[in-house]
Each structure stands twice: as structure tokens, then as C-alpha cells.
Design a protein around this nucleic acid. Structure first.
Lengths: 202, 202, 202, 202
DNA sequence: GATGAATGAGCATTCATTCAT
DNA sequence: CATGAATGAATGCTCATTCAT
């Protein structure tokens, strides 16, 4: 799971990563509220004190996990966008990066879905709002580059993201919760094609 | 909120409805786990005992609320489907009924999103699974009527629902969480048109 | 179980008996505190109100059951004593009536052991004390009849009952709790013989 | 009360002992079910959490207390048996150790009587059954030593313990519940003599 | 009388967090 | 820095009892 492994070097960071990993598993398995600090402590064989030292409190841990997922997802999206040129390329980049990230990091994706409500209502809601804003800004900027994005101009700006990513997100949720079996990666082309058709004027 | 008012007559049922209503508000405002029975009790001015008498325990209340939402949503969908004839009509019925229900019952829709994880992992998961199965069966049967559904045959069956409803769901979520301002009803035609294009072969 | 059946005639009394019977079973199976009025209600298919009507409250039911057992046990003891003549006969009457009653009414005997603490500390403790006094008086009087009881005069009065009944009681407890298999009735002669030897001066 | 004081050294153990002591008093005074954790907490001036930390839950506390009593009683019995040689000595050892222990630890003895039902039906019943088995084994082994126990061979094995200890137990119960005034210690010789006569063949 | 829905004080238990060692 | 025992407010839930019908 390079998401954690690539981040920090050193002994200290190793413990931090172990805690995050253990917390992720517990949160996904038991639910966030149902997970106790003690469970996480057992799962990564450390002390309560250590967890509090690194993350302040339970909400800090929840948020750290959420922001790590956001950042990793953003990195992949930016990679894909960097290689794209046309509007169609951009739509593909959004759908592919989304689908590929979920398929590669299903645990983090599942967590992201479940944790959003808590984080966006907890003490880190402002930090989340700001990160969201930055993300939207980046995507918006990409689609505002000269010679790109005109194809989307016919649609309300607030609707476009849903048109592009909605089907992919919907299928990914179904896959993560086990309601469908095939990996979203198997359908990435259909999903990208459908997204493109959704926003194209005939 | 006709969702509750139409269901049961009589004094007894009145208390039951008041509890459901109060619980819905608390769950949406504070979050399910953060809501205490005491908060609900205050909100509908009854006794703890009465709540337990009617719903068994907190999870029973959470589930009762969830199933009430499901049923109300299903009723509207069936209404719309009953009036539809062609495949295109069917797609429209799915998108319109979804959008209209969310726009009409935003509290119930918001709750449905937030409660799904808890219900599908709690003691009522089997009941939920069965209700889901029935719902899928009904929709599937509609699209299997003679002369209908061939247009969707080119797509994997497990992918089709996401292609049809994904964008609408995505925008509804954004609206319910306040990230976008315009009611999904304003975009129902665009969303239905996009859905249709998603599943149409050129 | 003639203990209850012989007591009251009529429809009303029938319900009262049914409640007592159900309560006895519940108390013995679950323990007195762990038994709820609701459990008893289900077991005898009546209403909570009916139980309260007949016994006032839970403690009243507990006491009524206890006193019924005492009375039935006393009746048998008095029967046996009425037929006895010598001191030895009296000792036999005590041991035999005790053993025979336990063997015939194991449920009531078990209950009597378990309920004593609660009753003797609850609101009926005075009534219990008085009934105990009467019982002791009766036995004492029997052993004070002319020509009887001198054989016991060498032993402290407060010790004699334990010397006579102790072994029988100990074995009955063991039998009721399943620690030994053979009915105490099989050993009634040995127990009576041992009791007699316990209080006999060599 | 050396029963607790002799067991564990150190600060930690001190709290544990204080909790046990407080629980014993509360259980004996109010009854086990009627005692709340809060009462115990007040009685030993600690926190609820500390009680749960050390004993898991109320039933764990009840059992710990019960097993402590069993062990202390067994220690005294083994002391007495170690010094005994003949069968008569053995019978005396059983009666004397029983009487002396009750007289020395009346609180623990009273508790043992009251708690048996709960422990033998609760989550520690298996542990209790096993400890009982071990105890019986030890006594049985003592009476199976060469040259000992033949005097008891005429009586059914399952009856012998009741014949030996029944009267003593009966009197001890009466004393603990206040029905008789004199300490059982005053009658230990009579009780041992009676026990011996109970099992002796004329 | 009989019924059982409603009441609400009271309880066992949990668990995030602190802080002395 | 690390540890984990101790804390205690807070919660879900129970159940004896009442009383309107």
C-alpha cells in the first residue's frame, strides 16, 4: 500500500503509519463510531498514549486518515490530467483516475465514503472545506486552459462534475459494498465514454 | 410531510409518527451515533420507555426510519413506471422519480444516504438485503416486458443502474450537502437526457 | 402439584394459582431478581394488571409463594408429628416429613432455599418472623409433651434442630442442585438414624 | 481480615482489595442484586472505571469474591487435614475447619451462602464446577489413604459429606442469620462428636 | 374488573482522555 | 518521550408500577 509507505521515512513515521493502517481497518470493519481507541491500540500493538501523542484525539485520527486519502487521490488525478490535452482527454483523466484509484485503494475509498459526514461536521470541517476548494480550483483551472472546455459550456457549471463522475462513483460504491462483483476497472472505458456522451451536445 | 401522515391512523400511531419525525431530525442534524435517545425524547416530548416500547431499541428506530424512506421512494418509482411505456420512458421514470423524491423529501433522502452503512451492517441487514432484492426484481421485471429494454442489452446488467442513476444521485448528494444551490428538479430533464445518452449506442 | 390445587376453588383462584405456578418456574429457572413481571405474564398468559391485582407487587408475589411453601411443609410435618409418640418417633417425623416434602415438591423446596434471603429482608420480614416463631413453638410444644423430649435435654436447645435436620437438609440441597443423583427418599432411614444418634447420649 | 491482606502486596493490589472489601460489605448488607456499582464505588472511594478495570463487570466481582472465600476456606481445611491421622481425626478436621472458618470469617461465610446460586448459574459456573471438583478430589484422596476411611465404607459415598458436615452447616447458617446467638465455635466439639456418631456403625 | 401502553428513575457499562510514573 | 491505570461523564436500556380506557 504505497499510499502510506511512500510518505514518511524513519522509525517514528513507521509507528504513525502503523496506527493509520490499523485505524483504517478498524473503521472500515466496525464503523468509525464503533471503533474504540483500545481496538486500534491492540491492532497495531502500541499504547494509547502513543496514539494520542501522534494524532491528538480520535477526531484527529479520523481526519488525518481522510486527508491522506484525499491527497493520494488528488495526486493520481493530477498525474492523469498532466498528460491530457483535449477536453475529451480531461474527462477521461477524471473518470480513469477516479476508477483506478478506487480499484487500487478500495479500503481508502470505502473509508472516504463513510468518513465524509463525520469529518465535514467535526472540528476539521474548515480544513476540509479549504482542501475541497483547492481541489475544485485545480480541476476548474485545467478545464479553463485555452482551447479546452468549450464543449462543456452548454451545461450548468455546478452540474458538470456530476455528469462526468456520477456513473463511475455510483458503480464504485456498488462494488465497494459488494453489490456488484466486477472491478470498476473492467468498465473504465464504458464509464468514460458514457461520461463524455453525458456532456456532449448532439 | 405526507410520508408519515399517510401511513397509520389513530392516536397510537400518532406518537409513533412523532417519534420517527423527531428521530429523523436529530439523526440528520447531529448524526446517527451522536444522537442520544434522550435528545429524541425531548424533541417529541414523550418518555424513553415509549420509544423503546415502539421500536425495541435505537437500531430498531434507525431501521424503521430507513425502511419508511425506502418504501416511500419505491411508491413514487412504481407510480412513474406504471405510466411509462418505452425504454426511454422507463429511464425517464427512474431519473425523474429519483430526483423528484429527493427534492420533495430532502430530509428523508439525506437520512437514507447517512444511514445505509449502519443499517446494512446492523441487526436488520438481512431485512434490508431482502427489500433490496425485491426492489431490484421489480425494476428488472419492468425492463423485461416485451418490446422494452433491448436498447440496454449492449451494456453489462450490473453497470446499467449506475449509468442511469449515477449522475442524478451525484448531484442530489451535492445538493443535500449544500455544495450546490439549485434544486435537482431544475436539472431533471438534463439528467434524464444524459442518462439516456449514457446507455444509448450510437 | 396438590400444593396449589388443593387450596382455592373457583375461576378466580385458578388464575391466582396459574400465576403462582408460572412465577415459581421463572424464579427457579432465572433467579428471582432476573425474573421480570413480563416473563411471568407470558408464562401464564395473563396481563400485568392481573398479577398486580392479585399480589400487589413483585415482592408480594415472592412472599406469597414462600409462605405457600412454608404452609405446605408445615402441614406435612404436623401430619407426621400427630402420628408420633416417643421422642424417637418425633425425630423421625421431623426428618421424614422434611425429606418427603422436598422429594415431593422439589420446585418449592428449591425456591424456599433461594427466596429466604429476599423475604427475610423485604417488606414481609415481620410476617416471616412471626410464622417462623409459630412453627418453632409448635415443634417445641410437641417435644414438651409429658414423657417426651428428655433424651434431648443434654443438648443446648438452639443446637438440637441443626443436629436433627442438618444432615437431611444438606443432602437435600445437594440433590436439588444436581450435585448428587439419588433422591433423598432413598436415604430417609439412614438420615433419621443418623439424626437420632446425633442427639443420643451414649 | 487476613483473608485479603495476606494475598497481594503493592499499591495496585491495595485498591483491588479495597474494592473486594467494599463489595463484600455491600453484598452482605443489601443483597447482591440490590447492590449497585455506585454503592461499591462510594464505599471504597474509587471510580467506576477502576472497578471495571480490575474485575471486568459486576459478575466478575461477585465471582472473584466467591473464589477468594473458597480458597481461604480450603486453605484452613487443608491445614487441619494435614495434621490429622485417623478417620476420626479427618472427620474432626472437616467439622473443626468448617466451624472455625465460619466463626473467623462470618462475612465471607455469609456471602458464600448467598452468592452460590448466582455464581453457579452465571458466566463463571464452569470455573466454579472445576474448583468444586478439585476440592472434592482432595478430600476424597485424604480419606483414601491407607488405613483410613474404612469406617465410612458402610455409607453411600454421596451421603457421607452431608452426614459429616450437615449439622455444622445448619447451625452456622442459623448463627449467621441471627436466629441463634452462640458462636458455632462453642459447639464445635458437640458437632464433631455428632458427626462422628452419624457415620459410625454401632 | 381487566388490560397493556406509558412512565421515568435507576443501572450496568463504555470509552475518550488524562497524567503520574 | 512512552505507558496504561485511573477517571467519570454520558448512554442505551430495563422494568416495576401506574392508570386511562
Amino acid at each position: 500500500m504505497e499510499l502510506l509507505e511512500s510518505s514518511y521515512p524513519g522509525r517514528r513515521a513507521e509507528l504513525k503509519r502503523a496506527i493509520l493502517r490499523a485505524a483504517l481497518d478498524c473503521f472500515n470493519t466496525q464503523g468509525i463510531e464503533a471503533t474504540t481507541i483500545e481496538m486500534i491500540r491492540v491492532a497495531c500493538d502500541t499504547s494509547v498514549g502513543a496514539i494520542y501523542h501522534h494524532f491528538g484525539n480520535k477526531e484527529g485520527l479520523v481526519a488525518a486518515l481522510f486527508f491522506a486519502a484525499m491527497q493520494d487521490q488528488a495526486a493520481l488525478r493530477n498525474d492523469y490530467l498532466a498528460k491530457a490535452e483535449t477536453t475529451r482527454d480531461g474527462v477521461n483523466a477524471l473518470v480513469f483516475s477516479y476508477v483506478d484509484w478506487v480499484a487500487r485503494q478500495p479500503d481508502w475509498a470505502r473509508y472516504q465514503f463513510n468518513a465524509r459526514f463525520v469529518v465535514s461536521n467535526g472540528p476539521f470541517k474548515d480544513e476540509l472545506a479549504q482542501k475541497n476548494k483547492i481541489r475544485n480550483q485545480q480541476v476548474k483551472e485545467w478545464f479553463s486552459r485555452p482551447g479546452v472546455g468549450q464543449e462543456l459550456a452548454n451545461y450548468p457549471a455546478e452540474l458538470v462534475p456530476s455528469l462526468i463522475i456520477g456513473s463511475a462513483e455510483s458503480y464504485c460504491r456498488a462494488w465497494l459494498s459488494g453489490r456488484v462483483k466486477k472491478s470498476p476497472k473492467a468498465y473504465r472505458d464504458i464509464l468514460a465514454e458514457a461520461a463524455w456522451r453525458s456532456v456532449s451536445t448532439m
